[in-house]
């Protein structure tokens, strides 16, 4: 990765977080908790993949209709997150792969 890529990446990340900051408070809180969770269990390409910006797009749309965030995604935020990352390889899968388990159901 070149220095240019890193700088570009940071710029994009800052722009992304600025959009998060502009969300209504309930959306912002839920987004941040989701992000923390997804970084722990989510896909490997999370920082530069399409998932997080997609969530912000979706939240902006929901906020624009005047709905509360839990009205939009339901009370079980973890279930929503798990549905989001279904079928994408996660850190845990990568770890299991590396220790030689054959445990990713998608590959069987």
């Amino acid at each position: 990765m070149s220095i240019r890529d890193i700088v570009e990446g940071k710029k994009q990340w800052r722009a992304h977080m600025a959009r998060v900051k502009a969300l209504p408070p309930d959306y912002r809180i839920v987004y941040k908790e989701m992000q923390t969770y997804l970084f722990k269990v989510g896909p490997l390409d999370l920082p530069d993949g399409p998932l997080l910006p997609g969530i912000v797009d979706f939240f902006e749309g929901g906020a624009a209709t005047g709905k509360g965030v839990l009205e939009l995604i339901g009370n079980d935020v973890a279930a929503f997150c798990d549905d989001l990352i279904k079928e994408s390889p996660t850190r845990a899968d990568a770890l299991r792969e590396s220790i030689g388990g054959r445990s990713n159901p998608a590959e069987q």
């Binding site: 809180i29 839920v30 908790e33 923390t36 969770y37 269990v41 839990l70 009370n75 935020v77 973890a78």
Partner: peptide, 19 residues
């Protein structure tokens, strides 16, 4: 993973109620 799920939902509930 289950514990993290519960933690996420707990944090959300707590912070939203504070709101």
């Amino acid at each position: 993973r289950d514990r993290r799920r519960e933690q996420l939902n707990r944090n959300v509930a707590r912070k939203l109620s504070r709101l």
